[in-house]
């Protein structure tokens, strides 16, 4: 499901958008590099090990973390498992439908997962309990509740906030057996990756496109950066192009805007 496929922006509205952009303005009066308001509520699902509802403008997503133990992958016997998944619920938009995940939903989940994984946000070595045998398995599932553009960033922020506040059971080894305790410990979070998506309209790049802007944009580029300003994931999307110079411009904007958003996400999730 994507807004782009189903949501037709009126030609005159698009013309208006482009005209505004040429004067450095956007339809919702934001600056070109200004993201929509972000709100974060954590600990909303008691049965989850961590959870967060994040809104980015009118896009709303809920991420829940479930942690169990299991066997590691054979090729990484000393690392725990971290899996991010996302589903666009039928209740999220008039264009969403139940059924197997669409290409768009799969891309969304994989791009967000890549940002979390590649930034090494969670130290997977610290999720190892008995090498080759038992590790923590951390599943982050994201439900998209309302769609209004830029699900990539909204989903990523929800995952980050849910993980930053998630707790897992401590364990002890008694008689060569792993025994879970009632006491809890935070998930070993080392970094706070921040995803920043830009939409291209002609030669202009704008941060955090809303649903209407996504309907009219040429293409988008998502860049995830870490606390040190490193780029750790990126994805170009939609059937159009971007110049090499614009890619570098997008990287600089993502690093800069990412720093502001990171501070906000850290503040909203501090214990």
């Amino acid at each position: 499901m994507s807004m782009k496929k189903n949501y037709v922006v009126e030609t005159i509205r698009k013309a208006q958008m482009l005209e505004l952009l040429n004067r450095g303005k956007r339809v919702d009066e934001r600056a070109l590099d200004q993201h929509r308001e972000i709100t974060v509520q954590t600990g909303v699902i008691q049965k989850a090990n961590g959870s967060a509802i994040v809104t980015l403008g009118d896009s709303q997503v809920l991420a829940g973390v479930k942690i169990a133990t299991g066997a590691p992958f054979p090729d990484t016997p000393d690392k725990g498992l971290l899996v991010v998944n996302a589903e666009i619920l039928p209740l999220a938009s008039p264009y969403a439908e139940p059924g197997p995940p669409s290409e768009e939903a799969i891309e969304l989940a994989r791009v967000v997962d890549r940002g979390i994984r590649e930034s090494e946000m969670v130290d997977l070595h610290k999720l190892c309990i008995v090498e080759g045998k038992t590790v923590y398995t951390v599943f982050v599932d994201v439900n998209i509740m309302n769609v209004d553009g830029n699900l990539f960033d909204a989903t990523s922020y929800a995952v980050v906030c849910a993980l930053r506040t998630a707790k897992m059971k401590k364990y002890a080894i008694e008689n060569d057996k792993v025994v879970m305790k009632d006491e809890e410990t935070p998930v070993p979070v080392e970094k706070t990756p921040v995803s920043v998506t830009l939409a291209r309209f002609g030669d202009k790049l704008v941060v955090d496109p809303n649903g209407e802007e996504e309907g009219a944009m040429d293409m988008r580029i998502t860049i995830t950066t870490d606390d040190d300003g490193n780029v750790c994931a990126s994805q170009k999307g939609e059937a159009s192009t971007i110049t090499p110079a614009q890619v570098l411009e997008a990287a600089d904007t993502s690093i800069r805007i990412g720093r502001e958003i990171r501070a906000q996400l850290v503040e909203a999730t501090k214990s």
Binding site: V231, C232, Q235, I242, V247, D252
Partner: peptide
Amino acid sequence: LLQVDGIYTR
């Protein structure tokens, strides 16, 4: 096409 994973300084 552009996809990135890993950790890259600017």
